[in-house]
Every structure is written in C-alpha cells, then in structure tokens.
Nucleic acid binder design. Structure first.
Lengths: 127, 127
DNA sequence: CGCCTAGTTGACAATCATTCTCATGTAATC
DNA sequence: GATTACATGAGAATGATTGTCAACTAGGCG
C-alpha cells in the first residue's frame, strides 16, 4: 500500500495507456514508447503494469493465446465486450450477472468469489 | 473436419482426462501419463488437447498466470465455478447470463458473439 | 544546497509453457 | 504385404514474462 514513487517511466506508461481505448499487450506498449521520445525498459513496463493492475488502475484480460492485455480503466466493477477483429473494447455492466454469480456460488457453498466475464464478438464496423 | 485416427496416445490422453473432474494443465497430464505405463510425447499431448478443444470435447480455461487448463466436458453450453484452493470445478448454467450477453452485444452492434464466464472462489471444503 | 537511503530502473540472462521441425512409426486401404 | 497419408516423439525454437544485479534517482535531512 506504500505510495509508489512517481517516475518518468511510470508517467510515460500511464500516458500510453490513457492514449488508447483498446487493450494493448505489454510488448505493444513497450514498442509504442520506444517509437516516441521516451525509452523505457521492457522489465519496467511489466513491473509497472503489474503494480498498476494490482492497484486496480488498469484492467487485464488474456487473449485466447494467453497473452496479457492491459487497458486504463475506470475503477467501478464492469466487464468487457471486445471486438475480435479490431480489438475495440466496450465496458459493460450487468447487475443481473453479478447477482447470478453470487447466487450460483452460494448454492454450491463457495465463498470469496470473484468472477470474470468476457464477451467476444465482431463489432458493427468490422462485420 | 476429417475423422482423426484413433491412436494409443490419443486414447491414453482421453482416459487421463476422463479420470479427473478437475482442470489439469497439459504439463500435468503429460506427467500423469508418464508416471503410468503409457509414454506420450509432450508435443502429442498439446496437439491432441488442441484438436479435442476445437472439436468441443474438452474445455479450456486459463489460470491468472496464463497457463491453459483442460478438462473433459459434456457438450452442452455451460460455465465453471472453480475452487481457487483445490481446483474443484462445478459446471453451472445460467440462462440469464446467456440472455444478458446477447442483449448487451446487440445493444452495441456486436455480432457472432461468444462469451466466457469464470467464477473463482473458495469451496466449502477449503474455506 | 549536498548527502544518504531506499525504491526504481534497464540490460540481459533465465524460465517456462507452448509450438515447430522433421525423421520415423503406424492405421487404413488396396 | 505394399502404399500412403496422417500421427508421433525428441529436441530445438519461440516468445512472453520474470529474475538478477549494478547503476540511477526521488525525497528527506542537515
């Protein structure tokens, strides 16, 4: 919970994340920074992404291939609707889903549940 | 879509999958086979797992670390409630969730949608 | 302002799951 | 039994991610 120290690298990474509404891989973010003025080490990108994720500042999803994708994210609980072609992501909420997850978990005696919901499809621009 | 050829290795893998109700990684399955009489190459395990997954014979989920886990699975559409401690997995269905996913997708102009829902918690035995 | 200390960084090696390569094996067909 | 196309296995290759460790720097202190 210690306040992390603001650094040039961290700021650049945050900027790169804010600059896109789509999910990007760590590698992409690293490359994007490299193409600009700022140079940030790959390990640093990973470290900060991890830190930001555990602070809830970014969201993480996984491609079917298992690669992690990150995106700056508002802090309320929500899920994603992702275009499989262009990667565009829309945040969606669903009170019904939350309730369903709770109920199902309780029915089976599970506690401390978390859930992930990802919807993948083809958006109107790409179909 | 060609019928795959039945082989000793494929059968052994199928048996290993049937033998457990929990999700197992490809590495685990490979090790389990190795400990028994049957020896199956790691590449073969991956190849068959992949083939079986695309035929819908097994389900695939990903650990938070990105490792793929497989499990023999009945063919109807459903989701999983997984214990984060012991790995026990319960199949759950939720008509409400399906409907919600459809509606949300349509609202945003998405088509050909697929969705994944995973609920992770601590089961009664492990809490 | 100059110094100290602990958190940060970056280059690169190391890991680890997964995929690729290609020579060899084998099920199905004739 | 001969043929052929698909399957297998050993090991190399890949590629994302993590670990290592010396060099760097933000912030507090005098």
């Amino acid at each position: 919970m210690s306040a992390r120290r603001p650094t040039r690298q961290r700021a650049a990474l945050a900027r790169a994340l804010e600059g896109s509404t789509q999910f990007s891989s760590a590698q992409e973010l690293h490359a994007r920074l490299r193409n600009e003025d700022t140079t940030v080490g790959l390990a640093t990108v990973y470290r900060n992404l991890q830190a930001m994720a555990s602070e809830g500042e970014v969201d993480v999803i996984r491609t079917p291939e298992g690669e992690a994708l990150y995106r700056a994210c508002s802090t309320h609980h929500h899920h994603h609707l992702v275009c499989r072609v262009c990667g565009k992501a829309v945040e969606v909420t669903g009170a019904g889903v939350e309730a369903w997850a709770e109920r199902v978990s309780a029915e089976h005696g599970f506690s401390s549940v978390q859930h992930t919901v990802e919807i993948v499809g083809t958006c109107s621009d790409c179909s």
